[in-house]
Design a protein around this nucleic acid. Sequence first.
DNA 1: TGACTATATGTAAATATAATCATATATTAT
DNA 2: ATAATATATGATTATATTTACATATAGTCA
Lengths: 110, 110
Amino acid sequence: MKQEILHIQTSAFNALAHPLRLKILEKLRSGPCCVCKIIPYVGGEQSNVSHHLALLRKAGIVQSEKRGLEVWYQVTDTRIFKVIDQMAGCIVQRLKKSQRLLRSLQETAV
Amino acid sequence: MKQEILHIQTSAFNALAHPLRLKILEKLRSGPCCVCKIIPYVGGEQSNVSHHLALLRKAGIVQSEKRGLEVWYQVTDTRIFKVIDQMAGCIVQRLKKSQRLLRSLQETAV
DNA sequence: TGACTATATGTAAATATAATCATATATTAT
DNA sequence: ATAATATATGATTATATTTACATATAGTCA
């Protein structure tokens, strides 16, 4: 049972572990969006973007809805952006930390 | 530059995208921990666990420190647990939502 | 010094993921 | 019905990840 959650969580993190997919989610930050807008935004081939959208869908991160010829995507739970932002925060802090370390090393070198 | 951050973030999420690595982090929740405790906790072979620890290290999620013969690991930034917990929250909510949907379908079936 | 212990690293095989190309499906317009 | 459009899916190849086994390294102790 706990094992199940672990696997769902794993596949959710896996869904975020690709630059193109993070870019897709960046586009979805402002709300539902048509695939026809997502493709030029993230760049690359249509079928490739579609595969990545499918992966995000299967991981439960996004949902799609057909509107005429178009398909619109949106995130299933906007808290996914908090996950992404928290991670960005961790990274920025880490970079700042190593920047401080570098500076102090430079000072002692003088 | 923005591209760089995206790649660091990608590799950070990738580091969380494996059940064994999530288990390692679970063990590190209570603070620094010796590899000799991590291995029996997560199960599996020593060299495999060591490879996963190396990946977490390279992604900047954890840091290691030698103490005599032992090596102790700890998370670089405890906010990583917020990232994991937020994601768990998303998943639980999603499961609850589909449970409600299932129940309402069962009711209309009666 | 040599043996012992804890951990890391190199390597190879098995498996998974990503990108591309070709094709299928569904919707709309003629 | 046919053509055109938007998107999804399947197949293939290239590449990356995971695991297991063997070996290396570094610290401790006799």
